[in-house]
Design a protein around this nucleic acid. Structure first.
Lengths: 220, 220
DNA sequence: TGGTCATATGACTTCATGGTCATATTATAT
DNA sequence: ATATAATATGACCATGAAGTCATATGACCA
């Protein structure tokens, strides 16, 4: 957790530090991301950083937490309207993918979380997020089963894991690939994002759902 | 590429170096893996390492290449018998998962390949592998479509990408999770692998196929 | 035996990192 | 104006990394 001093900082400064740090952690994996680099680019002294955060890991986990929260709140908005399983999942997938493309930095920060320092306290954080998401999907599936939308003869836990691997970075990667662009190039050239219209995202998600729907759906 | 000297080395020594290096690169992400550590554990001098390899990256790419080749040849064995799309894919998935669990180090080395040094030559290597695999799946799908096994109204490229995200680490992770074990713990305690019987792997793969089959299959 | 070539060595250099700390600056309150 | 507390600073430190190189060792052939 940041020290109190950090929260006393003028908004502008605080934001600048977080922005620079986020950019660094999005660009490099944890062990290669450089504090010296961050403070230089943020225009503050090395020592100041240690007035705000305990250490590198403290800064990183804070950033990671912010990123996760933002994505969560973005995606959760899709859950307002109660509809059937497939529509809900389709919306979640679309929202997740949109978010990853609109905030590529945040997505990258989360993806880079896998670079654990030795054995991982950070890995734990990442697993926690994965765990929560999978559990949520599992719940969705069970509900869908009760309602008769989902066929009853599949292992919900396993199916939830499959769903998770889809909602992650996968689809975003595919979309970028259709543009012939890597994540790094995408991060460096923000204007590319204009080529990825919501319609295009929607299309891909619908295609995926076409496949999944008949896989999950209860036999009529 | 290793220097000629490396290939002149006695088999035993060469193997020892590769083993230690592989273990290091499986344990730590590229930027944290330490040459000094490797040479110490392999019982050779730092300088010797530079008689064998140009630099750290040279050693790493060589290891990565070996890992990829081994996995390839392991998985490709499943392709001997010509059968239908679903059986083939099921076998591939099972083989891939089995391999990941039998050689967790190799799998980890590949997974750690994502930790690119800055912007990535290594990433390129990783993408190449991904690309090849996806193209292979795409080919499989198209063939299945022609034979009428796969319905014709899905985007083969997209479907291939989905398949890829499944064959990767995903299933292995799921299996470990059912044992309440992380990859790191699994690497540290090889005896755990005995709990993962081929039957258990087969079961999970079959479950996944149950879902996918009706998703991909041509309407009868 | 002497000479030549491949291999082995580890002290050393260079460099960047995370982290510290005594000191300087600024803001606040009296 | 003065005292006190909060914040800012960057030279500095310890550490460990990748990579170098002059020298030593050993193998093989004449």
């Amino acid at each position: 957790m940041p020290k109190p001093t950090f929260f006393n900082l003028p908004e502008e400064k605080r934001k600048r530090i977080l922005d620079v740090a986020m950019d660094e952690f999005a660009t490099y994996p944890y062990s290669k991301a450089s504090l010296s680099n961050i403070v230089a680019r943020a225009g503050i002294a090395k020592g100041s950083m240690y007035q705000y955060f305990d250490d590198k890991k403290d800064l990183y986990t804070y950033i990671l937490d912010l990123a996760a929260q933002e994505k969560m709140s973005y995606v959760k908005r899709e859950l307002d309207q109660k509809t059937d399983f497939f529509t809900t999942f389709e919306r979640l997938m679309a929202a997740g993918t949109r978010f990853n493309l609109e905030h590529p930095q945040l997505g990258q920060v989360v993806a880079n979380a896998l670079d654990v320092p030795g054995e991982g306290l950070l890995h734990e954080l990442y697993s926690k997020g994965r765990e929560m998401t999978i559990e949520f999907f599992e719940h969705m599936l069970k509900e869908g089963m009760e309602k008769g939308e989902i066929r009853g003869n599949i292992d919900p836990r396993l199916a939830a894991t499959l769903m998770y691997s889809l909602v992650g970075q996968g689809l975003a990667d595919y979309l970028l690939e259709t543009l012939g662009v890597t994540m790094h190039e995408y991060l460096a050239n923000p204007e590319i994002s204009q080529k990825l219209t919501p319609e295009r995202i929607e299309y891909v998600v619908t295609e995926v759902m076409k496949i999944l729907r008949s896989g999950f759906e209860a036999q009529k």
